[in-house]
Amino acid sequence: MPYQVSVFAENKPGKIERITGVLSKNNINIRAITISDSGDYGIIKLLLDRPQDGATILNDEGITATVKDIVAIRIKDKPGGLFEVASFLKANDINVEDAYGFMVKSHDEAVFVFQVENIKKTEKLLTDAGFKVLADNELYLL
């Protein structure tokens, strides 16, 4: 199962600059980024090609970061692509806590990344139903 890196950040200018600077210097590629905000502070979520290294390096630089399990699946990059997955998740009563998506270079596919309570169960259900669930290496090397 893949990981995302969650970074604690106070809500002030220069935070993203600092984080991305550290990653850039260490040649770590960002596949996706999203920010959850709670007023004074927020969590920056990063999909990195080397998540474990990324988290370690950020912590070494004094940036509070942790790795978190996520589910990533391949979906079709066309109308209704996400609806298909969302319908399946609803039918199985799986609540999506936090999610984001991005396209891949081939242009007919996209990736949907999300957080749920029971990751293993969700991955198994999706695989059994024929969805293309991405393992960690597959995701980072897209």
Binding site: F8, I43, T64
Partner: peptide, 15 residues
């Protein structure tokens, strides 16, 4: 200050 080792990456936990 947040204690880094206890950071779960979850905004609900922080709230």
């Amino acid at each position: 200050e947040l204690y880094s080792k206890m950071f779960s990456g979850d905004i609900k936990e922080l709230d």
